[in-house]
Computed example of a mutant assay.
Amino acid sequence: MNNFVGLSKIGLVRQRNEDRFFIDGPICAVTDGMGGYSGGEIASTYAVDEIKEYLASLQTVGQQDLCDAIIHANERIANRVAHEERLAGMGTTAVVTAINGNQLYWASVGDSRLYVYRDGLLRQITTDHSMVQELLAAGEITKDEMLNHPQRNLLTRAVGVDNTLEVDSGVESILPGDRILLCTDGLCGYVSDDVIASALQSTDDDMKVIESLMESVYDVGAGDNVTIVVGTI
């Protein structure tokens, strides 16, 4: 399999980039911080550092290990917030994946996403923990309306906010040629799944996919920081 590649860029209306990502062989993670002052930046950085360190200590990594790594990061961030009042309210999304053979394990909190692209079809694997996702599930808005909804940035679940945390997770069977994409809502909150699929369809070069998607985001104003990780099986 090809190595994963990633890129993170600051949006046009942001003063700092609160997104983070890491790629460590078959393990990838993307985080998107939230919170005033430097809180979001601290939370997202803390999360990737703690998740990476936790998983690096294991011989093999499975679905439960990814959940445990996010829960570990949650405890560390919540503990820091408890000792530094200025960081109250900070938190972060997290989507983490690990590949073992023909299995893709994943775990997620927040609205950063995991997609799998196969034979021209893009599938969103994770479910957003957001207000607009709940409105979509209730049939009150359409998927297209999620992109412009005034509450699209409101999360219903995030890492580091509470002492207890529910983590979504799963496993996907993958095939040679599958493309894996992780991103923050700086991408999927501003461009449609059709645009993402088109970029993946247009080239086998994973970095060119990322560059094309970055252009699409900036064409619509880059209202948030954007982080994208892509790999081909």
Score class of each variant (00 low, 15 high):
L213Y: 07
I210C: 04
C67E: 14
G189A: 06
I10Y: 00
A98K: 00
I125Y: 06
D65G: 10
D224R: 10
V161T: 13
D168V: 12
S57P: 00
G35Q: 05
T93A: 03
E145S: 12
N148A: 11
L121Q: 12
Q64D: 12
G89I: 07
G110L: 11
P26C: 07
R76Q: 14
T126P: 11
N2K: 12
W106G: 08
V61N: 08
H129P: 11
L155T: 08
S173M: 12
E18D: 14
V132P: 10
N163K: 13
R14M: 09
Q103D: 13
G11F: 02
D178Y: 09
Y46N: 11
G101C: 08
M131F: 15
A199P: 08
Q59F: 05
G89T: 05
V220K: 02
S173E: 14
V48I: 15
R118S: 09
S173P: 00
T203H: 01
G223T: 03
C67A: 08
A43D: 03
N148E: 10
T232W: 00
N153E: 00
Q63N: 12
N153A: 12
S192I: 07
Y105Q: 02
I51V: 13
L182M: 08
V195H: 03
N225D: 10
L12V: 01
V159D: 06
S8T: 15
D205I: 10
L66N: 07
G231E: 04
D24K: 10
E134H: 11
E140S: 15
S192M: 06
M90Q: 09
P176C: 03
T97Q: 05
G186Q: 03
A137S: 13
T164W: 00
H72A: 10
Q59K: 14
A94L: 07
P176Y: 02
Y105M: 01
G223D: 06
V167E: 07
L58T: 01
M146N: 02
T203A: 05
C188S: 15
R123Q: 14
A158Y: 07
L121A: 12
L104C: 11
M34S: 04
I23G: 05
I42K: 10
N225G: 06
I210N: 05
D185V: 05
A69I: 02
N3W: 09
T126I: 04
T232G: 14
D128M: 02
I141A: 08
E85I: 15
D119S: 14
V220W: 00
A137R: 11
A56K: 12
